[in-house]
Protein backbone atom coordinates (compact mmCIF):
# COMPACT_ATOMS: atom_id res chain seq x y z
CA UNK A 1 0.00 0.00 0.00
CA UNK A 2 2.79 2.44 1.00
CA UNK A 3 6.26 1.72 -0.28
CA UNK A 4 9.42 3.58 0.70
CA UNK A 5 12.41 3.21 -1.60
CA UNK A 6 15.97 4.20 -0.75
CA UNK A 7 14.97 7.04 1.60
CA UNK A 8 17.92 9.08 2.89
CA UNK A 9 17.78 11.94 5.34
CA UNK A 10 20.48 14.22 6.73
CA UNK A 11 20.42 17.05 9.25
CA UNK A 12 23.32 19.47 8.70
CA UNK A 13 26.13 17.01 7.94
CA UNK A 14 24.76 14.07 9.91
CA UNK A 15 23.05 11.33 7.95
CA UNK A 16 20.26 9.90 10.08
CA UNK A 17 18.58 7.63 7.51
CA UNK A 18 20.47 5.54 4.96
CA UNK A 19 18.69 3.82 2.07
CA UNK A 20 15.52 2.98 3.94
CA UNK A 21 13.26 0.71 1.89
CA UNK A 22 10.20 -1.17 3.11
CA UNK A 23 6.53 -1.62 2.44
CA UNK A 24 3.43 -1.32 4.59
CA UNK A 25 0.94 -3.82 3.16
CA UNK A 26 -2.83 -3.30 3.21
CA UNK A 27 -4.57 -4.07 6.53
CA UNK A 28 -1.33 -5.11 8.25
CA UNK A 29 0.39 -3.81 11.37
CA UNK A 30 4.06 -3.11 10.77
CA UNK A 31 6.13 -2.71 13.93
CA UNK A 32 9.09 -0.35 13.81
CA UNK A 33 11.66 -1.28 16.44
CA UNK A 34 14.98 0.25 17.29
CA UNK A 35 17.05 1.84 20.03
CA UNK A 36 16.70 5.54 20.87
CA UNK A 37 18.02 7.75 18.08
CA UNK A 38 17.88 4.94 15.50
CA UNK A 39 15.66 7.02 13.18
CA UNK A 40 12.16 5.66 13.88
CA UNK A 41 10.55 9.06 14.43
CA UNK A 42 12.36 10.54 11.41
CA UNK A 43 10.89 7.79 9.18
CA UNK A 44 7.43 8.53 10.53
CA UNK A 45 7.91 12.27 10.05
CA UNK A 46 8.94 11.72 6.43
CA UNK A 47 5.91 9.51 5.73
CA UNK A 48 3.58 12.13 7.23
CA UNK A 49 5.23 15.03 5.39
CA UNK A 50 6.51 16.82 8.48
CA UNK A 51 10.05 16.33 7.16
CA UNK A 52 11.19 15.83 3.61
CA UNK A 53 13.64 13.15 2.53
CA UNK A 54 16.88 14.20 0.80
CA UNK A 55 16.67 11.19 -1.49
CA UNK A 56 14.31 8.34 -2.28
CA UNK A 57 10.67 7.94 -3.20
CA UNK A 58 7.38 7.15 -1.53
CA UNK A 59 4.71 5.26 -3.45
CA UNK A 60 1.08 5.07 -2.43
CA UNK A 61 -0.76 2.31 -4.31
CA UNK A 62 2.17 2.22 -6.77
CA UNK A 63 2.03 5.93 -7.58
CA UNK A 64 4.89 8.23 -6.54
CA UNK A 65 3.57 10.75 -4.06
CA UNK A 66 4.72 13.86 -2.23
CA UNK A 67 3.77 13.38 1.44
CA UNK A 68 3.25 17.15 1.75
CA UNK A 69 0.40 16.92 -0.74
CA UNK A 70 -2.85 17.71 1.19
CA UNK A 71 -4.75 14.97 -0.67
CA UNK A 72 -2.23 12.37 0.61
CA UNK A 73 -2.19 13.85 4.11
CA UNK A 74 -5.94 13.39 4.38
CA UNK A 75 -5.39 9.61 3.92
CA UNK A 76 -3.07 9.46 6.93
CA UNK A 77 -3.71 9.56 10.65
CA UNK A 78 -0.59 10.45 12.65
CA UNK A 79 -0.07 10.18 16.38
CA UNK A 80 3.26 11.84 17.26
CA UNK A 81 5.26 10.58 20.22
CA UNK A 82 4.75 13.81 22.19
CA UNK A 83 0.98 13.19 22.22
CA UNK A 84 0.12 16.76 21.22
CA UNK A 85 -3.07 18.21 22.65
CA UNK A 86 -4.44 21.66 23.50
CA UNK A 87 -4.82 21.35 27.26
CA UNK A 88 -7.32 24.21 27.60
CA UNK A 89 -9.71 22.55 25.12
CA UNK A 90 -12.27 19.87 25.88
CA UNK A 91 -11.94 16.66 23.80
CA UNK A 92 -15.00 17.62 21.76
CA UNK A 93 -13.50 21.06 20.95
CA UNK A 94 -10.15 19.53 20.10
CA UNK A 95 -11.63 16.82 17.90
CA UNK A 96 -13.88 19.35 16.12
CA UNK A 97 -10.86 21.60 15.45
CA UNK A 98 -8.81 18.72 13.99
CA UNK A 99 -11.82 17.43 12.04
CA UNK A 100 -12.38 20.83 10.41
CA UNK A 101 -8.69 20.96 9.38
CA UNK A 102 -9.03 17.44 7.96
CA UNK A 103 -11.76 18.82 5.70
CA UNK A 104 -14.72 17.16 7.43
CA UNK A 105 -17.83 19.21 6.69
CA UNK A 106 -19.83 20.86 9.46
CA UNK A 107 -22.77 18.55 8.74
CA UNK A 108 -20.67 15.40 9.31
CA UNK A 109 -18.67 16.81 12.19
CA UNK A 110 -20.88 15.67 15.07
CA UNK A 111 -21.33 12.20 13.57
CA UNK A 112 -17.59 11.81 13.00
CA UNK A 113 -16.61 13.00 16.51
CA UNK A 114 -19.20 10.65 18.01
CA UNK A 115 -17.88 7.73 15.93
CA UNK A 116 -14.21 8.14 16.94
CA UNK A 117 -15.07 8.84 20.57
CA UNK A 118 -17.01 5.57 20.69
CA UNK A 119 -14.13 3.72 19.04
CA UNK A 120 -11.67 4.95 21.67
CA UNK A 121 -14.18 4.94 24.54
CA UNK A 122 -13.86 8.62 25.50
CA UNK A 123 -17.55 9.54 25.26
CA UNK A 124 -17.75 10.00 29.05
CA UNK A 125 -15.06 12.73 29.11
CA UNK A 126 -15.89 14.64 25.92
CA UNK A 127 -16.86 17.84 27.71
CA UNK A 128 -14.12 17.85 30.38
CA UNK A 129 -10.99 19.97 29.98
CA UNK A 130 -8.15 17.87 28.52
CA UNK A 131 -5.77 19.14 31.24
CA UNK A 132 -7.94 17.43 33.87
CA UNK A 133 -7.88 14.00 32.17
CA UNK A 134 -5.68 11.05 33.12
CA UNK A 135 -2.74 10.13 30.89
CA UNK A 136 -4.68 7.18 29.51
CA UNK A 137 -7.62 9.36 28.48
CA UNK A 138 -5.27 11.98 26.99
CA UNK A 139 -3.67 9.25 24.89
CA UNK A 140 -7.09 8.10 23.74
CA UNK A 141 -8.14 11.66 22.84
CA UNK A 142 -4.99 11.99 20.71
CA UNK A 143 -5.71 8.61 19.14
CA UNK A 144 -9.29 9.71 18.40
CA UNK A 145 -7.96 12.73 16.50
CA UNK A 146 -5.80 10.33 14.48
CA UNK A 147 -8.89 8.34 13.47
CA UNK A 148 -10.91 11.34 12.28
CA UNK A 149 -11.75 11.25 8.59
CA UNK A 150 -11.31 7.46 8.43
CA UNK A 151 -7.66 7.45 7.27
CA UNK A 152 -6.36 4.44 5.36
CA UNK A 153 -2.93 4.50 6.98
CA UNK A 154 -2.22 5.07 10.68
CA UNK A 155 1.24 6.13 11.79
CA UNK A 156 1.52 5.65 15.55
CA UNK A 157 4.71 6.74 17.30
CA UNK A 158 5.03 5.07 20.73
CA UNK A 159 1.25 4.97 21.10
CA UNK A 160 1.36 3.08 24.40
CA UNK A 161 4.23 4.87 26.15
CA UNK A 162 3.41 6.03 29.65
CA UNK A 163 0.19 4.03 29.93
CA UNK A 164 -0.56 1.62 32.74
CA UNK A 165 -0.74 -2.14 31.93
CA UNK A 166 -4.54 -2.13 31.65
CA UNK A 167 -4.51 0.88 29.32
CA UNK A 168 -1.75 -0.71 27.23
CA UNK A 169 -3.88 -3.82 26.73
CA UNK A 170 -6.86 -1.67 25.75
CA UNK A 171 -4.86 0.37 23.21
CA UNK A 172 -3.34 -2.84 21.74
CA UNK A 173 -6.81 -4.32 21.38
CA UNK A 174 -8.01 -1.15 19.68
CA UNK A 175 -5.05 -1.12 17.26
CA UNK A 176 -5.72 -4.77 16.36
CA UNK A 177 -9.36 -3.90 15.70
CA UNK A 178 -8.42 -0.90 13.55
CA UNK A 179 -6.10 -3.05 11.41
CA UNK A 180 -9.13 -4.87 10.00
CA UNK A 181 -9.58 -2.05 7.51
CA UNK A 182 -6.42 0.07 7.88
CA UNK A 183 -2.68 -0.26 7.43
CA UNK A 184 -0.70 0.65 10.53
CA UNK A 185 2.91 1.61 11.12
CA UNK A 186 3.56 1.33 14.84
CA UNK A 187 6.80 2.22 16.59
CA UNK A 188 7.64 0.82 19.98
CA UNK A 189 10.50 0.11 22.36
CA UNK A 190 8.71 -2.82 23.92
CA UNK A 191 9.51 -6.11 22.20
CA UNK A 192 6.62 -8.17 23.70
CA UNK A 193 4.27 -5.45 22.46
CA UNK A 194 5.60 -5.81 18.91
CA UNK A 195 5.17 -9.57 19.16
CA UNK A 196 1.65 -9.20 20.50
CA UNK A 197 0.19 -6.96 17.82
CA UNK A 198 2.42 -6.73 14.72
CA UNK A 199 2.20 -8.80 11.55
CA UNK A 200 5.53 -7.59 10.24
CA UNK A 201 8.60 -6.34 12.03
CA UNK A 202 11.23 -3.81 11.02
CA UNK A 203 14.33 -3.32 13.14
CA UNK A 204 16.24 -0.13 12.51
CA UNK A 205 19.69 0.66 13.84
CA UNK A 206 21.85 3.73 13.17
CA UNK A 207 19.60 4.82 10.32
CA UNK A 208 19.53 1.46 8.49
CA UNK A 209 16.92 -1.28 8.32
CA UNK A 210 18.64 -4.34 9.72
CA UNK A 211 15.64 -6.68 9.74
CA UNK A 212 12.41 -6.74 7.73
CA UNK A 213 10.46 -9.90 8.37
CA UNK A 214 7.11 -11.52 9.02
CA UNK A 215 6.80 -11.68 12.82
CA UNK A 216 5.97 -15.42 12.66
CA UNK A 217 9.33 -16.11 11.04
CA UNK A 218 11.34 -14.40 13.76
CA UNK A 219 12.45 -16.77 16.50
CA UNK A 220 13.54 -15.24 19.79
CA UNK A 221 12.94 -11.58 18.93
CA UNK A 222 14.76 -10.31 22.04
CA UNK A 223 17.99 -12.11 21.15
CA UNK A 224 17.74 -11.03 17.51
CA UNK A 225 17.11 -7.43 18.52
CA UNK A 226 20.19 -7.35 20.79
CA UNK A 227 22.35 -8.95 18.08
CA UNK A 228 21.24 -6.54 15.38
CA UNK A 229 21.41 -3.34 17.39
CA UNK A 230 24.81 -3.85 19.04
Amino acid sequence: MLKLTKICKSFSNTQVLKDISFEIPKNKIVGLLGPNGAGKTTIMRIITGFLTANQGTLRWKRKIIDPRDPSFRSLIGYLPESNPLYMSFTPVEYLSFVARLKGISKTNLVKEVKKVSQQTDIASVLTKKIETLSKGFKQRVALSATLLGDPQLLVLDEATSGLDPKQILEVRKLIKKLAKDKSILFSTHILPEAKAICDQILIINQGRIVLDSDIKKVRNLEKKFIQLTQ
Binding site: P80, S82, V98
Partner: peptide, 14 residues
Protein backbone atom coordinates in the same frame (compact mmCIF):
# COMPACT_ATOMS: atom_id res chain seq x y z
CA UNK B 1 6.92 23.44 22.98
CA UNK B 2 3.89 21.14 23.25
CA UNK B 3 4.49 19.40 19.91
CA UNK B 4 1.16 20.49 18.42
CA UNK B 5 2.92 22.03 15.40
CA UNK B 6 3.89 18.46 14.39
CA UNK B 7 0.22 17.52 14.46
CA UNK B 8 -0.86 20.67 12.58
CA UNK B 9 1.80 20.41 9.88
CA UNK B 10 0.93 16.77 9.15
CA UNK B 11 -2.75 17.64 8.63
CA UNK B 12 -3.84 19.00 5.23
CA UNK B 13 -2.57 22.44 6.33
CA UNK B 14 0.38 24.36 4.87
Amino acid sequence: KYGTWELLLTLPLS
